[in-house]
Amino acid sequence: MTRQPRLATRIFAHLAVIVLVMVVLYPVMLVVKKAFEPGRDFALSPSPIPTTLTLDNFRGLFGTQGSHGEYLFVRQALNSVVIALATTVVGVFLSCTAAYALSRFRFPGRKTGLTTFVVVQMFPSTLLIMPLYVVLDKLGLLNSITGLVLVYSTTAIPFCVWTLKGYFDGLPRELEEAARIDGASAWLIFRKIILPLARPGLAVTALFSFMTAWNEFILASTFMTSESRYTLPVLIQSSVGEFSSQYGLFAAGAIVTSVPVMAVFYVLQKYLVGGLTAGAVKG
């Protein structure tokens, strides 16, 4: 742009963006305010500045005890961490091999396989809740961490495969071809050459799976029936109900749950978009 628009237009544009930023920040500020204000009700004034400060809500959140006196929040946070980590590991591990096959090999049914992964990705897991409930029940995996990890992993696989494939497609093939001429097996090539090169892609995929598992609530609340197995989203969602709402607890929990994941997200968001659209464009 060689010409600058008029001053009035420029000021107007800046104001518009500032207003939008305020609209974006307002709900967040309300939640932060609620977390530091006493009481369970959502206070009546719309101002985002807290009137009284207290740490009661956080104390209540961390201090909730179960029927055997154990500290539930720590337990539930641990559940969330374990489940999210396990999902990531299982999901990425299962996906990187499949993504490699779809990227490097040509075999009949490859196109169908690709389409299947795309189609399955768009199928919402909420539709499978009931049959999954029956399947997990028969396998004895209801109300168990293993069950939830397995379910989340299969939700994560299609996305991981799709993104990793796009990433692998972008890797140069010369190294692999040289290694094949030297007589290396496909598995060796995969382990020693591809995986190290693909580290950034793997990292991003892993982190997106982690975030998806960390933020999931409806499957967790349907499959887990005892409090010691709840994950953080279930805890937070259960503090706001139609009949009894504890917004203070909710706000404190929301902050504690979101801040770590937001930090990670901020660090990685530029890779995420690249991965998403690259996979889509090339797939």
């Binding site: 029927s67 055997h68 029936t225 005892s226 409090e227 259960s238 109900g241 009949f243």
Partner: peptide, 14 residues
């Protein structure tokens, strides 16, 4: 005796 607290919303359906 083991007590389990369940959120009231959807308790009946659960």
């Amino acid at each position: 005796l083991e007590l389990v607290a369940v959120p009231f919303d959807g308790f009946g359906d659960k």
